[in-house]
Structure formats: structure tokens, C-alpha cells
Amino acid sequence: MMVLSGLIGALGLVCMVSRKTLLGLLIGVQLLIMGSTMMFVFAGISAGLETQGHIFGLFITLGGVAQIVVGYALAIRLFFIRKQTSIDDIRMLKQ
């Protein structure tokens, strides 16, 4: 299961690198967060510290929500400024 969580995180990294839009980037971030949450949960189980692992997974999940919200806000800002969300042409957020 820990290998599976590492695989999910690795695929999230690939998704972040290979996609061309901001939403694709955020999908990769979400996958990374899911993988890291799972990693903490199963590492806690393996180490015999189940509850602590679960609580850290809870914190990571809710912290990931905050990151996704900031990503949405930046995507909206970019859409207002550039009228598109492709990340290929982004070099600076300033207009």
C-alpha cells in the first residue's frame, strides 16, 4: 500500500509536468496530496502509531484544500489578465 501511495504521488508529479493547462496542474497537485496522505496513514500503521498517522493525514488533506483554493484564485486572476489558462506562455503574472 505504501508503494501504491508512492505511485500515486509519482503519477501526480508526471501529471503536473505534462499537462498544459492550470486545471491539469491542479489535478496533479491533488494527486500528489492524495498520495502523501495515504503515505502518512500507512506509515503510521506500519510503525504502530495508527492514530498519529491518521491525524497527520487529516492535516495534509485539509492543508491541500488550502493549496487548491490558492491555485483556483491564481487561475481566475490569470484568466482575467490573459484570457487563457495555458501555462506555456506564462512567464510572469504581471500584465
Binding site: V3, L7, A10, V14, V17, S18, R19, K20, G24
Partner: peptide, 25 residues
């Protein structure tokens, strides 16, 4: 449909992910 960027960064990220899994294993 968006065309995917398949370049050295993607292969690098795949290698990083595989190395990550290997370390966990």
C-alpha cells in the same frame, strides 16, 4: 484536446517517481 508535453522533464519526473517508489520499497 490539449496536446501533451512529452519532453525530458516528463521522463525526469517519471524517473523521480520510480526512484521515490524504490526508496519506499
Amino acid at each position: 484536446p490539449q496536446k501533451r508535453k512529452i519532453n525530458w522533464l516528463m521522463f525526469l519526473s517519471l524517473c523521480l517517481g520510480l526512484a521515490f517508489i524504490g526508496v519506499i520499497w
